[in-house]
Nucleic acid binder design. Structure first.
Lengths: 129, 129
DNA sequence: ATAATCAATAATAGTTACTACTATTATTAT
DNA sequence: ATAATAATAGTAGTAACTATTATTGATTAT
């Protein structure tokens, strides 16, 4: 049975209030402003619980550590190779690529993980100056 | 230009001789059969050099550690949620999804990383028995 | 051929991101 | 209120990788 906790609520609130796809460490630093003695282990445990429950998304974009997204709706992400920022992409779903992948494959395709990379609008602007 | 060394050649040979997408640890264990005193650090260093040079692929499929593929041609991978195996998918390229993602996005899409997941043919067979 | 030079290695120490453990505290059910 | 139990803080531990360093081996100059 799952109980309520101040710590978990604070973590969720922080994630809902940002679009920056923070790392566990960043979540920790920010939630500590409200709960100074929160433990890093608590942050990790709750991020895992929330992600497993489908309340948030865990993003593994190939970097050294995972990132978290307070928006649990399936959507796609963009990773800027210049500044490292992860941003949301507003685009249609790509479920048709599951069909493409499944053609001639004996197994069952349940889904895919995709992220796009390149140069974000901000870094593009910087470079042309 | 990348030079030859007995160790690097052995690592490449091993990767060319398998389709199992091994981890660095597995590469280490297997290459040690030929070069017993090769160091794990050497394996990591050479895998990184080869991947950076484009001679092999580094795969980050969300698991705890990276995997390596001796085939440097861009292709797609499938991750079985049952047995954890990573296999190659023979399918057409998906560069059109870069266009989809780029529509309405101010930045530049250079590429994407995609892997598919589900149940592989072997595990499907096991379950229906 | 031999010495000088440079690159690659083995061994190992260090780091990062995360997980496990344990005693204590907070929340919920009775 | 009290008992049951989930969640916590703090700490120790682990896995995967990276950096350092002394040594070995290969290449080049003499």
């Amino acid at each position: 049975m799952i109980k309520h906790s101040r710590q978990r609520d604070a973590i969720l609130d922080y994630l809902h209030g940002t679009t920056s796809h923070p790392t566990a460490e960043t979540v920790y630093e920010n939630v500590r402003e409200q709960i100074p003695n929160i433990s890093l282990g608590t942050v990790y445990r709750n991020l895992n619980m929330l992600a497993d429950a489908g309340d948030i998304l865990r993003l593994s974009c190939g970097g050294t550590c995972d990132r978290y997204d307070g928006n649990p709706e399936l959507h796609y992400h963009f990773l800027c190779k210049e500044c490292g920022r992860v941003s949301d992409l507003e685009m249609e779903g790509l479920s048709h690529i599951n069909v493409i992948a499944g053609a001639g494959f004996g197994g069952t395709i349940e889904g895919h993980v995709t992220y796009f990379f390149g140069c974000c609008p901000e870094c593009n602007a910087k470079e042309t100056v």
